[in-house]
């Protein structure tokens, strides 16, 4: 058992991180702080989850969102997808294990992974709409968001959702406001089985090792930690009993990375594009400077008069 985050003092305190700890800021260049804060992480142990959705309720309560009541279509997901009002969602998969012929009920808590190399932030065109703190938390800043939806295309996990009410993007904040004052995320606090635990990234990896060893001893030979290197690792990690097949957990990407299309769009296209437009403008300017204007001469006018002169009107 991992010791839960203690209840903090009720005395008001300074936030533990803020503007000065920004490692990345969308559409801006920031000098990362000299000293990086200890990286934090949330570990979701899929094998321990009982699908009670206490985390979803806690998330709704803490963030004061109001997800729509939807109708039952015969599946357990409710709501049926992440929405601007539902930052985390239990996704249920019934999977028949071909090795054992057992039906396994896979329940994965979906939500923002807080990537070390966040595709959402890379794609975002609005300065400061997405920030990354040096403890690894990726947060959306609604005052700066323009609602373009680029983050949706940048994210390898299909997480951000754009609100039709205020036209800004929403996703899990890792309860940055709670963590800033020494609390754990609301979901971790609510989880009755300790399927969700929170601590430093090192602690979480260590704790996961123990969980993986335990699962292996129970016959889950390919149990493992999901901390995908393609996005530099994440600050929300999973313990999976079938870590070799993450996609069976409701499509958790196997080896995710920022899409090469997004990289090309945000990389070479920008520089080449500015260069092409610049060259067009400069060439025009230089051509004018060297050649001067192209003018109609007196002879041209006279020629036109000769041509039309024999016509009267």
């Amino acid at each position: 058992m991992f010791p839960p985050v203690l209840n903090p003092t009720t005395v008001p305190q300074e936030p533990k991180f803020g503007e000065r700890d920004l490692m990345r800021r969308s559409a801006s260049t920031v000098t990362p702080p000299a000293q990086r804060q200890t990286e934090v992480a949330k570990l979701i142990d899929v094998s321990k989850c009982i699908g009670c959705k206490a985390c979803q309720s806690a998330c709704i309560e803490w963030n004061d969102t109001h997800p729509q009541l939807e109708s039952n279509t015969g599946i357990y997901e409710n709501p049926h997808d992440l929405t601007p009002d539902m930052f985390t969602l239990m996704r249920f998969t019934e999977w028949e294990n071909p090795d054992t012929n057992n039906l396994e009920w896979l329940i994965r808590k979906d939500g923002c992974m807080h990537c070390e190399d966040p595709g959402c932030l890379k794609a975002c065109p609005a300065p400061g709409a997405i920030v990354q703190y040096s403890n690894g938390i990726v947060d959306f800043v609604h005052e700066n968001c323009i609602g373009c939806g680029y983050c949706v295309k940048g994210c390898p996990f299909n997480i951000p959702r754009i609100s039709e009410v205020d036209h800004t993007a929403y996703k899990c904040t890792l309860c940055s406001d709670r963590i800033a004052v020494g609390q754990g995320p609301a979901c971790a606090k609510a989880c009755p089985t300790q399927a969700i635990v929170f601590g430093t990234k090192e602690e979480m990896k260590k704790h996961a090792e123990g969980r993986v060893a335990d699962l292996k001893s129970r016959g889950f030979d390919s149990a493992g930690l999901y901390d995908p290197p393609g996005v530099g690792g994440t600050h929300v990690m999973y313990v999976l009993h079938h870590a070799d097949k993450p996609e069976i957990y409701a499509g958790l990407p196997n080896n995710p990375a920022i899409s090469p299309i997004v990289e090309a769009w945000k990389g070479v296209t920008k520089y080449a594009g500015l260069a092409v437009m610049g060259v067009a403008a400069v060439t025009g300017f230089l051509h004018y400077m060297v050649n001067g204007p192209n003018r109609v001469s007196e002879e041209d006018e006279e020629a036109a008069q000769r041509l039309t002169g024999d016509r009267s009107s």
Partner: peptide, 17 residues
């Protein structure tokens, strides 16, 4: 989303041109 990624790339290149 994959189609939208392509569309963004195409849109920005077409806009430059």
């Amino acid at each position: 989303i994959e189609q939208q990624r392509w569309a963004l790339l195409v849109h920005s290149i077409a806009a430059i041109l």
